[in-house]
């Protein structure tokens, strides 16, 4: 599984990343986490608010720092 975190690197992106790691740990899964900070690449996903979360090239959420419990539902 490849998880991408889209965002220019502000605090919220770091927080989201921490939540993703926590969710992975809870589920006992491993995944490759990529942080996408380049605006051109972020634009490819058509998101207007960051941070955004992409799981296996599919956009699952944007514009918020998801709670760990919500992230788990994306990863299952």
């Amino acid at each position: 599984m490849i998880i991408k975190i889209l965002g220019s690197g502000c605090k919220n992106c770091t927080k989201l990343e921490a939540h993703v790691r926590e969710a992975l740990q809870d589920l006992g899964k491993t995944a490759e986490i990529e942080k996408i900070t380049d605006f051109a690449e972020i634009a490819q996903f058509n998101v207007m608010k960051t941070p955004a979360l992409v799981v296996d090239e599919k956009l699952v959420s944007f514009g918020k720092v998801n709670e760990v419990s919500e992230i788990k539902t994306f990863l299952e």
Binding site: A43, M48, K49, T50
Partner: peptide, 14 residues
């Protein structure tokens, strides 16, 4: 939030 202004700008234009 100013950190979203670029994605927002692109998103609107697109």
């Amino acid at each position: 939030c100013s950190c979203s202004s670029i994605p927002l700008f692109i998103g609107f234009l697109k």
